[in-house]
Design a protein around this nucleic acid. Structure first.
Lengths: 231, 231
DNA sequence: TCAAAAGTGTTGACTTTACACCCATGA
DNA sequence: TCATGGGTGTAAAGTCAACACTTTTGA
């Protein structure tokens, strides 16, 4: 890592690094949910005076003995009570003045959760689901982070069976189509959508019908194999 | 960032963060080049005793007053003399024991450079281009980082006019096709390749012919608008 | 004149899109 | 019986893959 041609050891390098141990590293989680045909994101009221009144993503400093992925799972678990959730690293944000307390570099993860999951317990009363379509200014560079994560999800939803993390276990094709429409912000043709999704072979027909709908009920499906944490 | 409901200021938070300022952050650059119909990567002999004899990516600690992107440009510039080069952040690697000197989290970037560029000057005699097809064990988790970057490039080359960064300014369609073949590790049909690349409208016909070839010379092209640094 | 690669189009397979009618259910 | 969405197929357009012959150049 340097041009000096002296052979160094890990120990000598550790010492020479000490000057550099003054950048903090955090993880920010963009936790998406889906409700009322809209994509939502879980935010917490910023507890920093500089951002008072603004909402921010769920984040925390990475602990010295904690893996990055582990930190993101911890944050999610602490805030929602959920484990066993899909999380993916997206990008690292390191602009010099992104944090008013000093140099904090933040690794962004996104996660998709079922808002109606019985296990979901928001553990803080300043924690709320916000419609993506209706967001005010966010603290820090969190709008930037959110945009990047949204972009990533849009790239991935048609390739991988991700969106099922946002839905209850049983769902109809209509619900699934509405979800894709919400994520991609497009209108899809019903017949073509059904053909395409069936071709992917992601779904199992439950031989059950949607209950409590004021019209002809649709069949219910579940996903064959959901993408789960790699931890 | 915490559950305490005391309102904190950036200053008080800065102080409470001090315990956490003991993770170092580095940038590793996967610098790809192309020569003799093969993709190559620029590596340096590891100067750590623990990895003696092994090659490693080009990296350095991020300086306290340095943006992440700026760090990657600095590393590239220091090692190759090149600026004005395409660099993209790919992933951040933070496993606990990835670095023998202590906790070092590394942000990986990839870059594509023209090995024959007149400005290219390798600034260190332990710095060499290695065929991807012919790599030995690398230091740290650098094989992992390299794989991730290669994967990313493969996803992107058909979408964005990236590969032109690997070629001299003027090139023939044969050279371009060989390059795609090297990156994607596939054999492409010449007629289909030409049709497809022309449809993308990335190239300008220079009305010049390839010099010094022992067969019918091909036309030379240059790219219309190369992707350049965002710095 | 030979070897090597340049240049060039068509066909069939497949994928994508657009589009409309009858059916089942609850109110 | 009405309103609502469920369920279904086909044709046209577009994209992709396979494939062969003639031309130009240098040796």
């Amino acid at each position: 890592m340097s041009d000096t041609s002296i052979i160094r050891t890990a120990e000598s390098e550790r010492i020479s690094h000490i000057d550099y141990f003054n950048i903090a590293i955090s993880v920010d989680c963009v936790i998406f949910g889906y409700e009322e045909k809209e994509l939502k994101v879980l935010l917490i009221k910023s507890d920093l005076k500089e951002f008072s009144g603004l909402w921010s993503l769920l984040g925390d400093l990475v602990r010295p003995q904690e893996d990055l992925d582990a930190a993101s799972y911890r944050i999610l678990k602490e805030r929602t009570g959920l484990d066993n959730v899909y999380l993916e690293q997206v990008h690292t944000f390191g602009a010099l003045n992104r944090h008013p307390s000093g140099r904090v570099i933040s690794v962004a993860y996104y996660s998709l959760v079922d808002i109606s999951h019985h296990q979901l317990r928001l553990t803080h009363n300043e924690l709320h689901w916000h419609k993506l379509s209706d967001l005010n200014e966010l603290a820090f560079d969190h709008q930037l982070i959110l945009n990047k994560c949204l972009e990533r999800i849009r790239e991935q939803v048609t390739e991988k069976p991700l969106v099922f993390n946002l839905l209850p276990e049983k769902f109809s094709l209509r619900q699934l189509q509405e979800l894709y429409q919400a994520i991609l912000d497009v209108k899809l043709d019903r017949r073509n959508f059904r053909k395409k999704i069936m071709l992917k072979d992601w779904l199992t027909d439950l031989n059950e019908m949607e209950p409590d709908v004021p019209h002809r009920p649709g069949k219910l499906y579940k996903v064959k194999k959901i993408l789960k944490p790699r931890i």
